[in-house]
Design a protein around this nucleic acid. Structure first.
Lengths: 250, 250
DNA sequence: CGACGCGTTGAGTAGCCTCAACGACAGTGG
DNA sequence: CCACTGTCGTTGAGGCTACTCAACGCGTCG
């Protein structure tokens, strides 16, 4: 377990990329992550339809949220990385709207909605930043609708890998072109609306063409710019001028 | 032109469904819709990538937002109905991220981001409600990812029609099972990731089975409960207990 | 060692796509 | 008033992508 930066909130680090935070704001966020606990790989963290008792801040590890159709088909909705807050989007519903489970061993901070409400009450600026991350997610889902609606197998996979890389860099800008990728091909298939067979074929083809390389749970992006073009991937960056924040830096 | 309710903000009416609004709040929203103008059918309202100079509140008519891929493929992202605010989700980016055009003649209020910032500064509760609607959209996009990723032609169309009906009822709860539907089959196809041919076939099949009926730009839902089951459609309703609103009703 | 999960590969299939032709209809201009 | 034009929806023929089903190799773990 890495303890050398346990005092720094990963959520704060991520939000700090959008706008500088005051000490007070950092402290507010750190409070969310006071208590934390590790979950083994493949743990069910959130179960669809339950009352929203807890939210989770990811301190380490990967998770994914997904839904199961009545007949068993599964759709992976989103990956969650360090710095993300899980179930934030369910706040206005009061209950969870999908399942979440860990893809790796995870270190999560568990807190209640009330802890967030406290932040909402105390810092309009943090509130806005949190909503900002939600709107980033929103844009991400709009992109995925475009991908799932109009792209073929290879384009889908390329886009997904790029957005994964992008998501990783959000909390750790040091991520290069090579990264651990703990999803099985079944997971990846359920994320991009294909079958494991098609995923296997497409990945092989991509590797064949020297676009990427795979090795034991790792992905190596060999030609990022070509991949961006293939999937018409556009990186969404929140406007750094956050003049729209309510009560700016009171 | 209907003038008898021109003094009532449609946005206010929609937000009022989630939580009662004070007079002051209603007045704030009404300010957004002070000026308005009509646009003919098929007008380009928003063009992808431009600076976000204006937002629009829909007072009457239907619009749709969409993206065009480099090779011309199109994906319809969302329909917009009376009471909706267009481009709200682009606020943190400072530029538009998709195109919007009118499907019918539309009556739109045009206002600047600054007008919204004014609301953000004056009413945290309205701010939260506006974000609430955004999170409803968010949930809608998550549902669409599930639909596009894992459902076949008929299920997709059924789901889309139901969510359209649901969206209409959001601003006008009097909508029954029969409603105008100004989308062409090309539009519908681009919304659910199919071709016009598949849409035509699927609609014919649905009509054949007595599930719905079409007649000159109208859709008549004959068996809503069966359709809900077919597409495992779940109606998202924002929790009416909005205790999480910051500075509740100060 | 056997059991299981995971990835790969092959053969056959199904759903949706492409291309094309045609009819209905509305708008336009002569 | 009527051809002319373009959009829209329908239907058919053929093709392609991704799916289903299945077998097999590999590695991990009990």
């Amino acid at each position: 377990m890495v303890d050398d930066n346990s005092s720094v909130s990963l959520v704060a680090r991520k939000l700090g990329q959008y706008a500088p935070l005051t000490e007070n704001e950092t402290e507010l966020l750190a409070r969310l992550e006071k208590g934390h606990r590790t979950f083994p790989r493949n743990s069910e963290i959130v179960s669809n339809g339950n009352p929203l008792d807890n939210l989770y801040a990811v301190r380490a590890g990967w998770l994914m949220s997904y839904t199961i159709l009545p007949d068993g088909r599964r759709q992976v909705l989103q990956l969650h990385f360090p710095g993300d807050i899980i179930s934030l989007c369910d706040l206005p519903f009061g209950h969870t709207t999908h399942d979440v489970k860990t893809l790796t061993e995870c270190d999560l901070s568990v807190f209640t909605p009330d802890s967030l409400y406290a932040i909402f009450g105390q810092s309009p600026r943090l509130t806005a930043l949190l909503f900002g991350t939600l709107m980033m997610d929103h844009a991400g889902f709009m992109d995925r609708v475009r991908v799932l609606g109009r792209m073929n197998a290879r384009e889908r996979i390329v886009h997904f890998l790029l957005s994964t890389l992008h998501g990783l860099r959000m909390s750790n800008s040091a991520i290069s072109h090579k990264f651990d990728f703990p999803l099985t091909q079944f997971d990846l298939a359920d994320a991009v609306g294909l079958t494991n067979v098609s995923v296997s074929n497409a990945l092989s083809a991509l590797q064949e063409q020297g676009i990427l390389q795979r090795s034991s749970g790792q992905i190596h992006i060999l030609n990022e710019s070509l991949m961006r073009e293939m999937a018409s991937f556009t990186e969404r960056r929140i406007k750094t001028d956050l003049s729209w924040l309510p009560k700016t830096a009171r």
